[in-house]
Design a protein around this nucleic acid. Structure first.
Lengths: 358, 358
DNA sequence: TGGCCCGCTCGAATCGATTCGACCGTACAA
DNA sequence: TTGTACGGTCGAATCGATTCGAGCGGGCCA
């Protein structure tokens, strides 16, 4: 309304491909070809178009228009549970993300983060975002509705550790078998009195000694499966549940398990390396030496920053998991069918396990 | 060409708003209004449209088309240095991201991650992605070209800790003044023999004792400013440069500084809490007690997972930084002008600083 | 009863680029 | 000399939704 619209940067008169084409004296289609580079355009023409573009300050084709026409946005959605902050505290998740980035590198796509806010009508949601594909990482059943909408739209989906069901490819690891391997290692060293520190069993993250109710209400497959693996070897194993995968939580959970010197276990099977690091701290607090007085087994095979031990742990291919998910997506976008992958973890024997003290 | 296109999921015949409108017996415009909810549409009509939609399995307006027409994609780009993995190892960055997510919550926008691969013609780049705005976090001058393109397109930019220049709002903290505060605290306790462990001075991350060449080639403002602050109080302070912000690196850098018992400092000023945690480990390795034998000051005010001390540190508002960036973006997208913010850090005195031993 | 206003609905233009088929002139082979 | 092939360019349709102004019918007020 005012003679001068505003001094805001947003008021820039937008230059379009048509403007460039006009200045260069060619048609819009030719100009488009000149930009995409692929089509048959004479060098002279291409140069003229490019010159016109730079004269007008044309910054290249508008991504929005391009994505409408092409049907691809170059964006892959990633759904993480909870807040950004919480999700990125977990090194495994970060490695998986990194692998994912690698796996979709061929697409040249960016990763768009979503968090499972739990709020069903959060303003931004998966189905209002221009994504070409979606990766669900450890997602909860809450997402079912949105997942359905995505499938209707024909958007490829892949799940990592978390079973949305349907015909969605899943990337998993052998949680139970791997833990069993670790437990057997512990038994073979001669331990009989063993406890385990687990990941949370449900999103509310109740912690403490495992109760039948908690177990019945479990929604996190990973924790359940790993516990099964431990029980395969030590059926009556004592179970402490942590509130998250962190050193802090491992410390607290292990404190409880070690509290009573009379019933103190000689080995701890932790469901993550961070929890294991916390277990080691708990032992040190009590003046116990690892592995002399307490053996500790972790899970993940990450490097725990600041941990001085070479942790005995089940090394899972977290980067490969992400990469596999990425590759599955690339295939699906190419129109091929893709199936899930089940990865295998390997036992790394470090210096945190030893025979129990005579 | 084949009679049956393929059994791929991608071959779903897409349902468009027009189809829905046709089935509901209304025009496309009315159907659109029924979906966006805002327009004046009778309840009966709206219901009819919605019914038609669910009958056809219409998953809602196509985000690509919507973003072209509306001129907004609902996506905010975030540029981080390096790989996803490296960026997320830094708790400060994660908190900042979290704050950013909070700050733009009003937009209902998602965060699209980019990493400064250094490769100038990486397939996906800022200017082919449909972003409404971009936040640069600790970005390097390498981005100048792309930044320029974004500005031409009228896309709002905000920078956090890293000066791209121009009229881009910057969110910063008082790195120098804050560090000076920490150093003064140390001096007031009676320390005169003090060393500092710094963040890397350049992306290549050369580490070791600081040389004049390294200092001359510094590109990371944060490290330089914090060093200035330390020198304001202890002009001749010894400087160990770490290769990254991690416990591991802090440990190594501090080992060097403490190696010679004769010249051993009585206090360490670390440029991050992770580095400080490493410094504490280094002290413990040598049988030194913190704070009795060595005082340690950190920077950031994060909770270091697994650290048993209440670290004396400069608490910076990392979440608020992100939030401020987000709010600036919201303002800019609303057409208002936005300026940067300079935040203030506060000294938190924990139990890792004390007077030097007699 | 006539005029006016209001609420609902519709048509048509628009967002900006991509892509497919047509077209044209030239060069080369038959 | 005629036919063919082909590189280069253009027109027009298309992607799918949003939005603005116009139209239309009914209710209310004078």
């Amino acid at each position: 309304m005012s003679p001068e619209p505003a001094a805001t940067t947003g008021a820039v008169p937008r230059v379009t491909l048509a403007d460039v084409a006009a200045l260069a004296g060619v048609s819009a289609s030719t100009a488009s070809l000149a930009f995409s580079g692929s089509g048959p355009v004479s060098d002279a023409t291409k140069e003229r178009v490019l010159a016109a573009a730079s004269e007008l300050g044309y910054a290249g084709p508008d991504p929005r228009a391009r994505s409408l026409r092409r049907g691809r946005s170059g964006i892959v959605g990633v759904v993480l549970e909870e807040r950004v902050r919480a999700a990125f505290l977990d090194p495994v998740k970060i490695q998986t993300l990194d692998g994912l980035a690698e796996g979709i590198a061929a697409l040249g796509a960016g990763l768009l983060l979503f968090t499972d806010s739990g709020d069903p009508d959060a303003p931004v949601s998966l189905d209002t975002a221009p994504v070409d594909a979606v990766v669900l990482i450890g997602c909860s059943p809450k997402f079912f509705r949105q997942v359905e909408a995505l499938q209707r739209r024909g958007i490829p989906l892949v799940a990592i550790e978390g079973a949305p069901g349907g015909d969605i490819p899943e990337i998993t690891i052998d949680n139970r078998e791997a833990t069993r391997l670790g437990a057997e290692h512990v038994r073979s060293l001669g331990h009989t009195d063993v406890a385990t520190v687990t990941l949370p069993f449900e999103p509310t993250r109740t912690r403490g000694e495992l109760t039948p109710e908690m177990e019945a209400g479990a929604t996190v497959d990973t924790a359940v499966e790993r516990l099964r693996g431990a029980r395969d070897v030590f059926p009556g194993i004592r179970v402490g549940v942590a509130g998250a995968s962190s050193i802090e939580e491992g410390l607290e959970a292990t404190r409880l398990l070690l509290a009573d010197a009379a019933t103190r276990p000689t080995a701890i099977i932790a469901q993550s390396d961070l929890l294991a690091a916390g277990a080691i701290q708990a032992a040190e607090e009590l003046g116990l030496q690892v592995p002399r007085d307490l053996s500790v087994v972790g899970f993940d095979g990450i490097r725990v920053d600041g941990l001085q031990h070479d942790l005995t742990t089940l090394v899972q291919p977290s980067v490969a998991k992400g990469r596999a998910a990425g590759e599955a997506i690339v295939r699906m976008l190419a129109g091929e069918a893709a199936s899930g992958t089940d990865f295998t973890s390997t036992l790394h024997v470090g210096d945190t396990t030893a025979p129990p003290r005579g």
